[in-house]
Design a protein around this nucleic acid. Structure first.
Lengths: 116, 116
DNA sequence: TTATAATATAGATCTCTATCTATGTAAGCG
DNA sequence: CGCTTACATAGATAGAGATCTATATTATAA
């Protein structure tokens, strides 16, 4: 689990406007001008948000003529779901990834699964 | 899907220290002093982070003598997983929740599932 | 080539937030 | 009671980030 990458994704998602952009893109690819229609902020602000989403590897861009088409990355969807599942694993096994958990070290946590 | 609540959870999680706290708590309940041992920041800073996590309904606190015991809320785990799954639904159906998606309105998105 | 349309970049500003020190509160102990 | 321990609150500060206006870039069309 790539802690840093997961935090970067969370940060990129933790803005209502960017979350809405991700939601819009879950319908399929859109160009910048189409996305912009759904918001009140300016075009440079959208450009900024799209850059944040690209830097976090959430969104991919491909240029076609004058237009920039944005798409949700399949790898982001898979990675984010997987990391979330691991962080919030609901089985009894301690899944702390910090390597600093006293519970894990002391064995107080219920570890029921010996594989891996 | 409660958009605002989901954003609040994402914001609370989108800090490396708070994410580590969540990870530590996935091993089971811990008191503030135990959590603090895993970090370099001051006690008031931890107090601040715990408040953010409580306000987002990620963590529950119960006082026992001098100690504050913190636990991950089961409802948070369920809600966050569910909202994430809905946002990033991998089927072909458009799952945009913004009520503003032109793709959805125009029917360009592939809607394969007619149940609700 | 000139004009227009789509997008990016630069720089400024204002708000939010993570952190600190200092202090307050509350519980247990001698 | 006074002391210590565990935690919260208040207030200040420094850095990050969301937004804007102005301008640059790139592509197409007339």
């Amino acid at each position: 689990m790539n802690y840093q990458k997961y935090v970067q994704m969370l940060k990129a998602m933790a803005d209502p406007n960017r979350l809405k952009i991700i939601d819009l893109l879950s319908c399929g690819s859109l160009c910048a001008c189409d996305i912009l229609e759904h918001f009140d902020f300016s075009q440079p602000t959208l450009s900024h948000h799209m850059k944040v989403l690209q830097t976090a590897d959430i969104v991919a861009a491909r240029k076609e003529g004058k237009w920039q088409h944005y798409t949700l990355r399949a790898e982001f969807i898979a990675t984010f779901k997987q990391d979330t599942a691991r962080l919030l694993a609901s089985d009894q096994r301690c899944v702390c990834h910090t390597n600093a958990c006293q519970e894990c070290v002391s064995g107080k946590a219920v570890i029921t699964n010996e594989e891996t």
